[in-house]
Amino acid sequence: MKDTTTSAVIEARGLGLTFETNDGPVRALTDVDLSIGKGEFVSFIGPSGCGKTTFLRCVAALEHPTTGTLSVNGMSADAARQARAYGYVFQAAGLYPWRTIAGNIRLPLEIMGFSRADQEERIERVLSLVDLEGFGKKYPWQLSGGMQQRASIARALAFDADILLMDEPFGALDEIVRDRLNEELLKLWARTEKTIGFVTHSIPEAVYLSTRIVVMSPRPGRITDVIESTLPRERPLDIRDTPEFIAIAHRVREGLRAGHGDEV
């Protein structure tokens, strides 16, 4: 195992979150211990309702844990948010329809007070990073779903946060587009060396992308298994047919089944 304790970017200890709802408390997360090192690509996988989104939202300080501690870049999640430490990619692209693609990417830059010249330069850079050169002047609705999702990734990349949090970013896309974007995401990760937290429902996607796979289970939401990937960093798409890949995928499936246990 790498030296994750000293260079942990995200560190959760005994993390728990209980939602107080009208029909009683819902324990969305309990006893989550996890540390994510710099430059790691960590996937979260598990059945619906196991708290994947909730965990990501805690890291982004969009929810506040009720127990345990959480540090991001050595500070509290809220402080990290205020230091603009991460880019968040939601399940849907969520682009503002009244802004062009370039305008959407400019949004965080405006809010964070980047200079005008810097804005233009960054927009150009991230547009080419996600392969959308020349689409800056288009409006979101003029683009396909896959292109919109790439634009939303570009938006998250624009201000150079070193953590990227992605909540099922490709969930709404078809298999072929998804494969392409997966490949591109890996390249991007290799180029930028960001730390990535990635939620998915797809076992192949998780295995293909990650250095580590966190398996979660519901009621109450908790981590049941953490699987270290032995795949090389360089991964062509056909790596998915290798025995090594299939073995890891099998372990993940076993982990999921164990977590489900009595229910399935």
Partner: peptide, 8 residues
């Protein structure tokens, strides 16, 4: 939420 992640 997006605006919150930007600390707008």
């Amino acid at each position: 939420d997006l605006m919150a992640t930007y600390h707008a």
